[in-house]
Design a protein around this nucleic acid. Structure first.
Lengths: 234, 234
DNA sequence: CCAAAAGTGTTATATATACACCCATGA
DNA sequence: TCATGGGTGTATATATAACACTTTTGG
Protein backbone atom coordinates (compact mmCIF):
# COMPACT_ATOMS: atom_id res chain seq x y z
CA UNK A 1 0.00 0.00 0.00
CA UNK A 2 1.68 3.18 -1.15
CA UNK A 3 1.07 6.72 -0.03
CA UNK A 4 0.01 9.73 -2.05
CA UNK A 5 3.08 11.91 -2.56
CA UNK A 6 2.82 15.29 -0.89
CA UNK A 7 2.39 17.57 -3.88
CA UNK A 8 0.55 20.79 -4.32
CA UNK A 9 -2.16 20.34 -6.90
CA UNK A 10 -4.62 22.77 -8.43
CA UNK A 11 -7.92 22.21 -6.63
CA UNK A 12 -11.10 21.33 -8.55
CA UNK A 13 -9.17 20.34 -11.68
CA UNK A 14 -8.51 16.77 -12.75
CA UNK A 15 -7.80 14.91 -15.92
CA UNK A 16 -8.95 11.51 -17.08
CA UNK A 17 -7.37 9.45 -19.83
CA UNK A 18 -8.87 6.87 -22.14
CA UNK A 19 -5.89 4.76 -23.14
CA UNK A 20 -6.60 2.71 -26.23
CA UNK A 21 -4.69 -0.41 -27.16
CA UNK A 22 -5.29 -3.06 -29.78
CA UNK A 23 -4.97 -6.77 -29.23
CA UNK A 24 -6.68 -9.89 -30.43
CA UNK A 25 -8.52 -7.91 -33.12
CA UNK A 26 -10.19 -5.88 -30.37
CA UNK A 27 -10.00 -2.34 -29.15
CA UNK A 28 -9.24 -2.21 -25.43
CA UNK A 29 -8.75 0.42 -22.79
CA UNK A 30 -6.96 0.54 -19.47
CA UNK A 31 -9.20 0.53 -16.38
CA UNK A 32 -8.17 0.79 -12.76
CA UNK A 33 -9.80 -1.04 -9.91
CA UNK A 34 -9.67 0.49 -6.45
CA UNK A 35 -8.68 -1.55 -3.41
CA UNK A 36 -11.52 -3.34 -1.67
CA UNK A 37 -14.29 -1.29 -3.21
CA UNK A 38 -15.23 -3.03 -6.43
CA UNK A 39 -15.03 0.38 -8.05
CA UNK A 40 -13.58 0.88 -11.50
CA UNK A 41 -12.35 4.10 -13.05
CA UNK A 42 -10.32 5.63 -15.84
CA UNK A 43 -6.71 6.42 -15.03
CA UNK A 44 -6.56 10.07 -14.10
CA UNK A 45 -4.78 12.53 -11.94
CA UNK A 46 -4.22 16.08 -10.89
CA UNK A 47 -2.23 19.05 -12.11
CA UNK A 48 0.60 20.46 -10.04
CA UNK A 49 0.39 24.15 -9.33
CA UNK A 50 3.46 24.88 -11.45
CA UNK A 51 2.88 22.33 -14.19
CA UNK A 52 1.32 22.78 -17.62
CA UNK A 53 -1.90 20.81 -18.05
CA UNK A 54 -0.56 18.75 -20.96
CA UNK A 55 2.59 17.88 -19.02
CA UNK A 56 0.51 16.59 -16.14
CA UNK A 57 -1.27 14.19 -18.44
CA UNK A 58 1.96 12.97 -20.02
CA UNK A 59 3.43 12.47 -16.59
CA UNK A 60 0.43 10.40 -15.58
CA UNK A 61 0.64 8.30 -18.72
CA UNK A 62 4.32 7.65 -18.14
CA UNK A 63 3.64 6.51 -14.59
CA UNK A 64 0.79 4.24 -15.68
CA UNK A 65 2.27 2.75 -18.85
CA UNK A 66 6.02 3.32 -18.74
CA UNK A 67 5.75 4.96 -22.15
CA UNK A 68 6.91 8.33 -23.37
CA UNK A 69 6.05 10.16 -26.58
CA UNK A 70 2.57 8.79 -26.73
CA UNK A 71 -0.01 9.86 -29.27
CA UNK A 72 -2.31 11.97 -27.13
CA UNK A 73 -5.33 14.07 -27.88
CA UNK A 74 -7.44 16.26 -25.65
CA UNK A 75 -11.07 15.88 -26.64
CA UNK A 76 -13.46 17.33 -24.08
CA UNK A 77 -13.75 18.88 -20.65
CA UNK A 78 -16.45 17.49 -18.40
CA UNK A 79 -18.01 19.86 -15.90
CA UNK A 80 -21.53 18.73 -15.13
CA UNK A 81 -22.85 18.53 -11.58
CA UNK A 82 -23.68 14.83 -11.90
CA UNK A 83 -19.98 14.10 -11.71
CA UNK A 84 -19.87 15.56 -8.20
CA UNK A 85 -20.28 12.55 -5.89
CA UNK A 86 -18.02 13.04 -2.89
CA UNK A 87 -19.12 9.78 -1.31
CA UNK A 88 -17.36 7.86 -4.07
CA UNK A 89 -13.96 9.33 -3.35
CA UNK A 90 -14.63 9.05 0.36
CA UNK A 91 -15.22 5.32 0.01
CA UNK A 92 -12.00 4.95 -1.93
CA UNK A 93 -9.96 6.89 0.61
CA UNK A 94 -11.39 4.93 3.51
CA UNK A 95 -10.75 1.60 1.79
CA UNK A 96 -7.12 2.60 1.53
CA UNK A 97 -6.85 3.55 5.19
CA UNK A 98 -6.34 7.26 4.57
CA UNK A 99 -7.69 9.79 7.02
CA UNK A 100 -10.34 11.54 5.00
CA UNK A 101 -9.58 14.84 6.71
CA UNK A 102 -6.11 14.89 5.19
CA UNK A 103 -7.55 14.63 1.71
CA UNK A 104 -10.58 16.85 2.08
CA UNK A 105 -9.72 18.58 -1.23
CA UNK A 106 -10.28 15.31 -3.07
CA UNK A 107 -13.94 15.36 -2.05
CA UNK A 108 -14.55 18.69 -3.75
CA UNK A 109 -16.22 19.18 -7.05
CA UNK A 110 -13.87 18.51 -9.98
CA UNK A 111 -13.88 19.58 -13.57
CA UNK A 112 -12.08 17.00 -15.63
CA UNK A 113 -10.17 17.50 -18.85
CA UNK A 114 -10.33 14.28 -20.84
CA UNK A 115 -7.68 12.93 -23.20
CA UNK A 116 -7.40 9.83 -25.25
CA UNK A 117 -4.13 8.06 -26.00
CA UNK A 118 -3.24 5.47 -28.62
CA UNK A 119 -0.49 3.11 -27.67
CA UNK A 120 1.20 -0.04 -28.74
CA UNK A 121 -0.40 -2.69 -26.56
CA UNK A 122 2.69 -4.88 -26.36
CA UNK A 123 5.00 -2.20 -25.06
CA UNK A 124 2.91 -1.39 -22.02
CA UNK A 125 3.87 -2.36 -18.53
CA UNK A 126 0.78 -1.22 -16.66
CA UNK A 127 1.32 0.10 -13.12
CA UNK A 128 -1.49 0.82 -10.65
CA UNK A 129 -1.33 3.99 -8.59
CA UNK A 130 -1.36 4.34 -4.82
CA UNK A 131 -5.12 4.03 -4.47
CA UNK A 132 -5.74 1.11 -6.79
CA UNK A 133 -4.69 -2.46 -6.79
CA UNK A 134 -4.89 -3.20 -10.48
CA UNK A 135 -4.86 -1.60 -13.87
CA UNK A 136 -5.99 -3.90 -16.64
CA UNK A 137 -7.05 -3.97 -20.24
CA UNK A 138 -10.77 -4.32 -20.92
CA UNK A 139 -12.42 -4.68 -24.32
CA UNK A 140 -14.32 -1.53 -25.17
CA UNK A 141 -17.56 -3.46 -25.48
CA UNK A 142 -17.16 -5.33 -22.21
CA UNK A 143 -16.23 -2.78 -19.57
CA UNK A 144 -16.95 -3.09 -15.87
CA UNK A 145 -19.36 -0.47 -14.43
CA UNK A 146 -17.40 2.76 -14.09
CA UNK A 147 -17.67 5.46 -11.43
CA UNK A 148 -19.09 8.94 -11.96
CA UNK A 149 -19.44 9.90 -15.61
CA UNK A 150 -16.54 7.77 -16.80
CA UNK A 151 -18.75 5.73 -19.10
CA UNK A 152 -19.73 8.97 -20.86
CA UNK A 153 -16.09 9.91 -21.15
CA UNK A 154 -15.26 6.59 -22.77
CA UNK A 155 -18.19 6.88 -25.18
CA UNK A 156 -17.17 10.36 -26.25
CA UNK A 157 -13.54 9.31 -26.62
CA UNK A 158 -14.57 6.48 -28.90
CA UNK A 159 -16.82 8.73 -30.98
CA UNK A 160 -14.09 11.33 -31.34
CA UNK A 161 -11.56 8.69 -32.31
CA UNK A 162 -13.92 7.44 -35.01
CA UNK A 163 -14.40 10.95 -36.36
CA UNK A 164 -10.69 11.65 -36.35
CA UNK A 165 -9.73 8.37 -37.94
CA UNK A 166 -9.83 9.47 -41.57
CA UNK A 167 -8.88 13.08 -40.95
CA UNK A 168 -5.87 12.43 -38.79
CA UNK A 169 -4.86 8.92 -39.86
CA UNK A 170 -4.13 7.71 -36.42
CA UNK A 171 -4.54 3.98 -36.94
CA UNK A 172 -0.87 3.19 -36.98
CA UNK A 173 -0.32 4.47 -33.47
CA UNK A 174 -1.93 1.31 -32.15
CA UNK A 175 0.47 -1.03 -33.94
CA UNK A 176 4.14 -1.89 -33.69
CA UNK A 177 6.35 0.17 -35.98
CA UNK A 178 6.18 -2.47 -38.73
CA UNK A 179 2.82 -3.95 -39.61
CA UNK A 180 0.99 -5.58 -42.47
CA UNK A 181 -1.88 -4.06 -44.37
CA UNK A 182 -4.20 -6.63 -42.90
CA UNK A 183 -3.22 -5.67 -39.36
CA UNK A 184 -3.85 -2.03 -40.12
CA UNK A 185 -7.21 -2.91 -41.57
CA UNK A 186 -8.15 -4.83 -38.42
CA UNK A 187 -7.39 -1.73 -36.38
CA UNK A 188 -9.62 0.41 -38.56
CA UNK A 189 -12.39 -2.14 -38.37
CA UNK A 190 -12.11 -2.34 -34.60
CA UNK A 191 -12.32 1.43 -34.27
CA UNK A 192 -15.16 1.91 -36.72
CA UNK A 193 -16.99 -1.25 -35.73
CA UNK A 194 -17.68 -2.22 -39.34
CA UNK A 195 -15.94 -4.53 -41.80
CA UNK A 196 -14.05 -2.86 -44.65
CA UNK A 197 -13.35 -4.08 -48.16
CA UNK A 198 -9.87 -5.48 -48.41
CA UNK A 199 -8.88 -4.14 -51.81
CA UNK A 200 -10.43 -0.73 -51.35
CA UNK A 201 -8.73 -0.33 -48.00
CA UNK A 202 -5.35 -1.26 -49.42
CA UNK A 203 -5.63 1.26 -52.21
CA UNK A 204 -6.89 4.05 -49.98
CA UNK A 205 -4.05 3.61 -47.53
CA UNK A 206 -1.42 3.44 -50.25
CA UNK A 207 -2.84 6.49 -52.00
CA UNK A 208 -2.29 8.58 -48.88
CA UNK A 209 1.43 8.35 -49.49
CA UNK A 210 2.32 8.08 -45.81
CA UNK A 211 3.21 4.40 -45.67
CA UNK A 212 6.67 3.08 -46.47
CA UNK A 213 6.84 -0.45 -47.81
CA UNK A 214 9.49 -2.76 -46.44
CA UNK A 215 10.40 -6.43 -46.83
CA UNK A 216 7.84 -9.20 -46.76
CA UNK A 217 6.96 -11.08 -43.64
CA UNK A 218 7.06 -14.86 -44.07
CA UNK A 219 4.67 -16.50 -41.69
CA UNK A 220 5.35 -20.15 -42.57
CA UNK A 221 1.81 -20.40 -43.86
CA UNK A 222 0.99 -21.63 -47.31
CA UNK A 223 0.16 -18.33 -48.96
CA UNK A 224 1.75 -15.24 -50.39
CA UNK A 225 3.74 -13.30 -47.79
CA UNK A 226 2.42 -9.80 -47.08
CA UNK A 227 4.61 -6.72 -47.18
CA UNK A 228 5.45 -4.93 -43.99
CA UNK A 229 4.77 -1.22 -43.82
CA UNK A 230 5.78 1.58 -41.52
CA UNK A 231 4.43 5.04 -40.98
CA UNK A 232 6.71 7.65 -42.59
CA UNK A 233 9.17 8.80 -39.98
CA UNK A 234 9.67 5.62 -37.99
CA UNK B 1 -18.63 51.71 -12.77
CA UNK B 2 -20.28 48.49 -11.68
CA UNK B 3 -19.14 46.01 -9.09
CA UNK B 4 -18.42 42.34 -9.41
CA UNK B 5 -21.40 40.50 -7.91
CA UNK B 6 -20.55 38.55 -4.79
CA UNK B 7 -20.67 34.98 -6.04
CA UNK B 8 -18.78 31.91 -5.10
CA UNK B 9 -16.81 30.72 -8.09
CA UNK B 10 -14.64 27.68 -8.59
CA UNK B 11 -11.06 28.90 -8.25
CA UNK B 12 -8.50 28.36 -11.02
CA UNK B 13 -11.19 27.63 -13.61
CA UNK B 14 -12.35 30.06 -16.26
CA UNK B 15 -13.93 29.97 -19.65
CA UNK B 16 -13.34 32.08 -22.71
CA UNK B 17 -15.68 32.42 -25.65
CA UNK B 18 -14.96 33.22 -29.27
CA UNK B 19 -18.23 34.65 -30.53
CA UNK B 20 -18.43 34.65 -34.29
CA UNK B 21 -20.70 36.88 -36.27
CA UNK B 22 -20.94 37.66 -39.97
CA UNK B 23 -21.37 41.10 -41.45
CA UNK B 24 -20.23 42.94 -44.52
CA UNK B 25 -18.96 39.70 -46.05
CA UNK B 26 -16.54 39.33 -43.16
CA UNK B 27 -16.20 37.03 -40.19
CA UNK B 28 -16.01 39.01 -36.97
CA UNK B 29 -15.68 38.25 -33.27
CA UNK B 30 -16.62 40.10 -30.12
CA UNK B 31 -13.72 41.62 -28.17
CA UNK B 32 -13.83 43.43 -24.86
CA UNK B 33 -11.68 46.41 -23.94
CA UNK B 34 -10.86 47.02 -20.29
CA UNK B 35 -11.24 50.45 -18.72
CA UNK B 36 -8.19 52.67 -18.95
CA UNK B 37 -5.74 49.93 -19.76
CA UNK B 38 -5.74 49.56 -23.54
CA UNK B 39 -6.08 45.84 -22.93
CA UNK B 40 -8.27 43.66 -25.10
CA UNK B 41 -9.60 40.21 -24.31
CA UNK B 42 -12.12 37.58 -25.24
CA UNK B 43 -15.37 37.62 -23.29
CA UNK B 44 -15.05 35.09 -20.53
CA UNK B 45 -16.06 34.33 -17.01
CA UNK B 46 -16.09 31.97 -14.10
CA UNK B 47 -18.09 28.97 -13.00
CA UNK B 48 -20.23 29.14 -9.87
CA UNK B 49 -19.60 26.40 -7.36
CA UNK B 50 -23.02 24.87 -7.93
CA UNK B 51 -23.31 25.48 -11.66
CA UNK B 52 -22.59 23.11 -14.54
CA UNK B 53 -19.73 24.29 -16.74
CA UNK B 54 -21.87 24.53 -19.86
CA UNK B 55 -24.52 26.54 -18.04
CA UNK B 56 -21.90 29.02 -16.91
CA UNK B 57 -20.90 29.65 -20.50
CA UNK B 58 -24.50 30.05 -21.66
CA UNK B 59 -25.15 32.44 -18.80
CA UNK B 60 -22.13 34.51 -19.85
CA UNK B 61 -23.25 34.57 -23.46
CA UNK B 62 -26.71 35.69 -22.46
CA UNK B 63 -25.26 38.53 -20.40
CA UNK B 64 -22.93 39.63 -23.20
CA UNK B 65 -25.24 39.26 -26.19
CA UNK B 66 -28.79 39.13 -24.88
CA UNK B 67 -29.25 35.88 -26.81
CA UNK B 68 -30.43 32.49 -25.70
CA UNK B 69 -30.25 29.15 -27.48
CA UNK B 70 -27.00 29.97 -29.19
CA UNK B 71 -25.03 27.51 -31.28
CA UNK B 72 -22.15 26.73 -28.95
CA UNK B 73 -19.26 24.34 -29.15
CA UNK B 74 -16.52 23.56 -26.66
CA UNK B 75 -13.27 23.08 -28.54
CA UNK B 76 -10.24 23.08 -26.25
CA UNK B 77 -9.03 23.63 -22.71
CA UNK B 78 -5.97 25.81 -22.31
CA UNK B 79 -3.69 25.08 -19.40
CA UNK B 80 -0.16 26.20 -20.23
CA UNK B 81 1.94 28.19 -17.79
CA UNK B 82 2.40 31.05 -20.25
CA UNK B 83 -1.17 32.03 -19.62
CA UNK B 84 -0.35 32.72 -15.97
CA UNK B 85 0.39 36.46 -15.84
CA UNK B 86 -1.05 37.84 -12.62
CA UNK B 87 0.15 41.35 -13.39
CA UNK B 88 -2.36 41.59 -16.24
CA UNK B 89 -5.37 41.00 -14.03
CA UNK B 90 -3.82 43.19 -11.36
CA UNK B 91 -3.62 46.08 -13.81
CA UNK B 92 -7.22 45.57 -14.80
CA UNK B 93 -8.45 45.47 -11.21
CA UNK B 94 -6.50 48.59 -10.28
CA UNK B 95 -7.77 50.49 -13.32
CA UNK B 96 -11.29 49.77 -12.10
CA UNK B 97 -10.57 50.97 -8.59
CA UNK B 98 -10.96 47.59 -6.96
CA UNK B 99 -8.91 46.70 -3.91
CA UNK B 100 -6.70 43.93 -5.23
CA UNK B 101 -6.78 42.16 -1.87
CA UNK B 102 -10.51 41.55 -2.25
CA UNK B 103 -9.96 39.76 -5.53
CA UNK B 104 -6.79 37.90 -4.77
CA UNK B 105 -8.27 34.73 -6.29
CA UNK B 106 -8.42 36.42 -9.67
CA UNK B 107 -4.64 36.65 -9.70
CA UNK B 108 -4.20 32.91 -9.42
CA UNK B 109 -3.34 30.58 -12.22
CA UNK B 110 -6.36 29.74 -14.36
CA UNK B 111 -7.14 26.89 -16.66
CA UNK B 112 -9.57 28.06 -19.29
CA UNK B 113 -12.15 26.02 -21.16
CA UNK B 114 -12.69 27.62 -24.55
CA UNK B 115 -15.93 27.66 -26.54
CA UNK B 116 -16.93 29.16 -29.82
CA UNK B 117 -20.38 30.47 -30.61
CA UNK B 118 -22.06 31.28 -33.90
CA UNK B 119 -24.67 33.98 -33.76
CA UNK B 120 -26.79 36.18 -35.93
CA UNK B 121 -24.90 39.46 -36.00
CA UNK B 122 -27.98 41.61 -36.26
CA UNK B 123 -29.72 40.25 -33.22
CA UNK B 124 -26.91 41.06 -30.83
CA UNK B 125 -27.07 43.83 -28.31
CA UNK B 126 -23.55 43.67 -26.93
CA UNK B 127 -23.14 44.52 -23.24
CA UNK B 128 -19.77 45.05 -21.55
CA UNK B 129 -19.20 43.53 -18.13
CA UNK B 130 -18.24 45.27 -14.91
CA UNK B 131 -14.54 45.45 -15.71
CA UNK B 132 -14.68 46.58 -19.31
CA UNK B 133 -15.95 49.68 -20.99
CA UNK B 134 -16.71 48.27 -24.39
CA UNK B 135 -17.46 45.11 -26.27
CA UNK B 136 -17.16 45.44 -30.03
CA UNK B 137 -17.01 43.46 -33.22
CA UNK B 138 -13.61 43.11 -34.84
CA UNK B 139 -12.86 41.43 -38.16
CA UNK B 140 -11.00 38.20 -37.59
CA UNK B 141 -8.08 39.41 -39.66
CA UNK B 142 -7.80 42.76 -37.95
CA UNK B 143 -7.88 42.14 -34.23
CA UNK B 144 -6.32 44.35 -31.58
CA UNK B 145 -3.47 42.77 -29.58
CA UNK B 146 -5.06 40.40 -27.07
CA UNK B 147 -3.96 39.57 -23.54
CA UNK B 148 -2.48 36.26 -22.42
CA UNK B 149 -2.95 33.45 -24.92
CA UNK B 150 -6.20 34.79 -26.33
CA UNK B 151 -4.75 35.10 -29.83
CA UNK B 152 -3.99 31.36 -29.72
CA UNK B 153 -7.52 30.67 -28.57
CA UNK B 154 -8.94 32.64 -31.47
CA UNK B 155 -6.67 30.87 -33.95
CA UNK B 156 -7.67 27.46 -32.68
CA UNK B 157 -11.34 28.40 -32.69
CA UNK B 158 -11.10 29.46 -36.30
CA UNK B 159 -9.26 26.28 -37.30
CA UNK B 160 -11.82 24.12 -35.52
CA UNK B 161 -14.68 26.00 -37.13
CA UNK B 162 -13.14 25.39 -40.56
CA UNK B 163 -12.75 21.69 -39.84
CA UNK B 164 -16.30 21.39 -38.58
CA UNK B 165 -17.85 23.36 -41.40
CA UNK B 166 -18.55 20.45 -43.74
CA UNK B 167 -19.07 17.83 -41.07
CA UNK B 168 -21.50 19.78 -38.96
CA UNK B 169 -22.99 22.23 -41.50
CA UNK B 170 -22.93 25.14 -39.19
CA UNK B 171 -22.92 27.93 -41.74
CA UNK B 172 -26.54 28.85 -41.33
CA UNK B 173 -26.14 29.72 -37.67
CA UNK B 174 -24.47 32.96 -38.71
CA UNK B 175 -27.39 34.14 -40.84
CA UNK B 176 -30.94 35.29 -40.22
CA UNK B 177 -33.49 32.49 -40.43
CA UNK B 178 -34.15 33.20 -44.10
CA UNK B 179 -31.24 33.74 -46.43
CA UNK B 180 -30.26 33.41 -50.05
CA UNK B 181 -27.84 30.88 -51.44
CA UNK B 182 -25.41 33.67 -52.21
CA UNK B 183 -25.43 34.84 -48.62
CA UNK B 184 -24.77 31.33 -47.41
CA UNK B 185 -21.92 31.03 -49.87
CA UNK B 186 -20.38 34.27 -48.58
CA UNK B 187 -20.42 32.81 -45.07
CA UNK B 188 -18.64 29.68 -46.21
CA UNK B 189 -16.08 31.72 -48.10
CA UNK B 190 -15.45 33.92 -45.11
CA UNK B 191 -14.92 30.94 -42.83
CA UNK B 192 -12.73 29.00 -45.23
CA UNK B 193 -10.91 32.02 -46.60
CA UNK B 194 -11.20 30.84 -50.19
CA UNK B 195 -13.64 31.56 -53.01
CA UNK B 196 -16.05 28.78 -53.95
CA UNK B 197 -17.67 27.99 -57.29
CA UNK B 198 -21.18 29.28 -57.42
CA UNK B 199 -22.88 26.43 -59.22
CA UNK B 200 -21.04 23.69 -57.38
CA UNK B 201 -21.84 25.28 -54.05
CA UNK B 202 -25.53 25.56 -54.86
CA UNK B 203 -25.74 21.93 -55.84
CA UNK B 204 -23.81 20.68 -52.85
CA UNK B 205 -25.99 22.59 -50.40
CA UNK B 206 -29.22 21.48 -52.06
CA UNK B 207 -28.05 17.88 -52.18
CA UNK B 208 -27.69 17.85 -48.40
CA UNK B 209 -31.44 17.99 -48.13
CA UNK B 210 -31.42 20.25 -45.08
CA UNK B 211 -32.51 23.47 -46.74
CA UNK B 212 -36.14 24.40 -47.25
CA UNK B 213 -36.89 26.66 -50.18
CA UNK B 214 -39.28 29.55 -49.68
CA UNK B 215 -40.49 32.49 -51.74
CA UNK B 216 -38.19 34.67 -53.80
CA UNK B 217 -36.70 37.88 -52.52
CA UNK B 218 -37.13 40.82 -54.86
CA UNK B 219 -34.35 43.32 -54.44
CA UNK B 220 -35.53 45.93 -56.96
CA UNK B 221 -32.39 45.19 -58.97
CA UNK B 222 -32.55 44.29 -62.61
CA UNK B 223 -31.89 40.58 -62.34
CA UNK B 224 -33.55 37.34 -61.44
CA UNK B 225 -34.71 37.23 -57.84
CA UNK B 226 -33.06 34.57 -55.69
CA UNK B 227 -35.00 32.11 -53.58
CA UNK B 228 -34.91 32.40 -49.83
CA UNK B 229 -33.93 29.30 -47.88
CA UNK B 230 -34.14 28.29 -44.29
CA UNK B 231 -32.49 25.57 -42.30
CA UNK B 232 -34.90 22.68 -41.65
CA UNK B 233 -36.58 23.29 -38.35
CA UNK B 234 -36.85 27.08 -38.32
C1' DC C 1 -34.31 44.37 -75.52
C1' DC C 2 -30.44 44.68 -72.59
C1' DA C 3 -27.43 43.71 -68.55
C1' DA C 4 -27.00 41.38 -64.39
C1' DA C 5 -27.45 37.61 -61.52
C1' DA C 6 -29.89 33.13 -60.55
C1' DG C 7 -30.91 28.55 -61.64
C1' DT C 8 -30.32 24.26 -64.25
C1' DG C 9 -28.55 20.99 -67.92
C1' DT C 10 -24.66 18.72 -70.04
C1' DT C 11 -20.39 17.00 -70.30
C1' DA C 12 -15.84 15.94 -68.57
C1' DT C 13 -12.92 14.52 -64.94
C1' DA C 14 -11.68 12.52 -60.66
C1' DT C 15 -12.61 9.38 -57.05
C1' DA C 16 -14.60 5.34 -54.92
C1' DT C 17 -16.37 0.79 -55.24
C1' DA C 18 -16.96 -4.03 -56.96
C1' DC C 19 -15.20 -7.86 -59.00
C1' DA C 20 -11.92 -10.61 -61.22
C1' DC C 21 -7.62 -12.31 -61.92
C1' DC C 22 -2.91 -13.47 -61.09
C1' DC C 23 0.94 -14.28 -57.79
C1' DA C 24 3.57 -16.22 -53.98
C1' DT C 25 3.88 -19.60 -50.46
C1' DG C 26 4.35 -24.18 -48.01
C1' DA C 27 2.36 -28.58 -47.68
C1' DT D 1 -0.40 -28.94 -57.89
C1' DC D 2 -3.50 -27.38 -54.54
C1' DA D 3 -5.48 -24.20 -51.06
C1' DT D 4 -4.86 -19.94 -49.00
C1' DG D 5 -4.39 -15.29 -48.73
C1' DG D 6 -1.95 -11.03 -50.88
C1' DG D 7 -1.54 -7.73 -54.59
C1' DT D 8 -3.07 -5.39 -58.69
C1' DG D 9 -5.87 -4.57 -63.09
C1' DT D 10 -10.16 -3.37 -64.99
C1' DA D 11 -14.87 -2.16 -65.28
C1' DT D 12 -18.58 0.24 -63.09
C1' DA D 13 -20.75 3.61 -60.25
C1' DT D 14 -20.69 7.81 -57.96
C1' DA D 15 -19.19 12.40 -56.83
C1' DT D 16 -17.02 16.62 -58.22
C1' DA D 17 -15.86 20.15 -61.36
C1' DA D 18 -16.19 23.08 -65.51
C1' DC D 19 -18.82 25.31 -68.77
C1' DA D 20 -22.71 26.66 -71.24
C1' DC D 21 -27.27 27.79 -71.56
C1' DT D 22 -31.72 29.48 -70.10
C1' DT D 23 -34.63 32.25 -66.96
C1' DT D 24 -36.04 36.22 -64.42
C1' DT D 25 -35.84 40.93 -63.23
C1' DG D 26 -35.99 46.30 -63.75
C1' DG D 27 -34.46 49.88 -66.47
Amino acid sequence: MGSVPEQRFLPHIAYDSVIFGFSGEQLKILIMEYHNTGMFALPGGFVRVDEPLNDAVRRGLRERTGLDNIYLEQFYTFGSLERYQPEVMETILQANGFAVDDFRWMLDRFISVAYYALINYNKVNAQPDALSDSIKWYPLNDLPPLILDHADIVAKAHRTLQENLERKLVGMNLLPSRFTMKELQKVYEAILGTPLRRTTFQRKMLSLGILKRHEKRYSGKAHKAPYLYSFEGE
